[in-house]
């Protein structure tokens, strides 16, 4: 298989820089700090409770994993947001566009570079992550699941960064826009459900007593937006791994007044939240990459002959 030239070049160039070494160092430092903080908290708690310290240690895994995913979610858009706009600022973009590479392969090269970098960070963190497994109670498959989730989060974050990079001329604008997109996914996907829930609260006065009966109706279809919420996705992942519970079940309980055939119920009952959500995240990521490729392609349509040659506008 032929390696994308952009991946080959970018990985080589970036690995020569000291930035990557300092980045890994800072990453490990944060994880070590979180690990020791978790140990201190567990130790403090064990003084005042009769709970087994070993069962509490299991929670170090989600703490470290969540920390890593949050860091990746913050760092990857910053790195990818300058991928295309950085080429434009360096004035190497035009040269790139006149070569034999298609806009999509250029975009994919940039995304793959970002993913490889993220995975370098994740793999470098394995010694710290391995500390969660020495106590026992955790399966090694959880580590593989974590790697898979980190891959997906990196891909999703990179696609947002690349799209914003293709939309903006300057890297700094692209970074700001990337975080705006992130906010849209974190808050925008919850808002329809929340707004519907709040506006559909029916408060009615019943009888002479000062008693209000309050009935709630939750919009089941609005829950579907939550499938694209990264926070819900990660919560579902850790809930399933650690307590065997599903956030989807809770949503079903809230939407209990709905008939049994609704889509959210189908997803929840059959325990498909993670699968459906993963597919949706991947689909949205590919959509963003396709849009970015369309955006950077200078030849978007065929030229037409003017109706009146020489007429401006």
């Amino acid at each position: 298989m032929r390696l994308n030239p952009i991946v080959k070049k970018d990985v080589k160039v970036q690995s020569r820089s000291m930035k990557i070494c300092w980045g890994v160092f800072a990453y490990e430092l944060i994880l070590a700090f979180v690990f020791f903080l978790a140990i201190v908290v567990i130790k403090q708690q064990s003084r005042y409770s009769a709970n087994n310290i070993y069962s509490a240690m299991v929670w170090i895994y989600p703490a470290l994993a969540m920390t890593q995913l949050v860091i990746l979610g913050i760092v990857v858009p910053v790195r990818t947001a300058s991928a295309i706009s950085g080429e434009k600022e360096r004035q190497t973009f035009d040269i790139m566009m006149t070569t034999g590479m298609t806009p999509f392969s250029i975009i994919m090269g940039k995304v793959m570079t970002a993913i490889i970098q993220s995975m370098l960070f994740v793999v470098a963190s394995l010694p710290v992550m391995a500390l969660c497994f020495i106590i026992g109670g955790m399966s090694w498959s959880y580590l593989l699941w974590f790697l898979a989730i980190a891959l997906l989060i990196s891909f999703f974050s990179a696609s947002i960064g690349i799209l914003c990079s293709s939309l903006c001329k300057r890297s700094i604008s692209a970074v700001i826009m990337s975080y705006g997109f992130y906010l849209l996914f974190f808050l925008g996907t919850v808002l329809p459900y929340l707004i519907y829930s709040i506006t559909s609260v029916n408060m009615s006065y019943s009888g002479p007593a000062t008693v209000f009966s309050v009935s709630y109706s939750y919009g089941e279809n609005w829950c579907l937006f939550l499938l694209l919420n990264p926070a819900v996705y990660l919560t579902e992942f850790f809930a399933q791994i650690l307590v065997g519970d599903s956030i989807a079940n809770n949503l079903v309980n809230l939407t209990g007044t709905f008939p049994t055939g609704g889509p959210i119920r189908y997803i929840a009952v059959n325990n498909r939240w993670l699968i459906v959500s993963t597919v949706m995240f991947a689909a949205v990521s590919f959509l963003f990459l396709w849009l970015a490729a369309k955006r950077i392609n200078p030849i978007k349509r065929k030229a037409r002959k003017p109706k009146t040659p020489g007429a401006a506008g």
Partner: peptide, 13 residues
């Protein structure tokens, strides 16, 4: 083959 007016470079290449 295109040579633009400004030559941008990649560091460390």
């Amino acid at each position: 083959g295109y040579v633009p007016d400004f030559f941008g470079v990649y560091d460390n290449l």
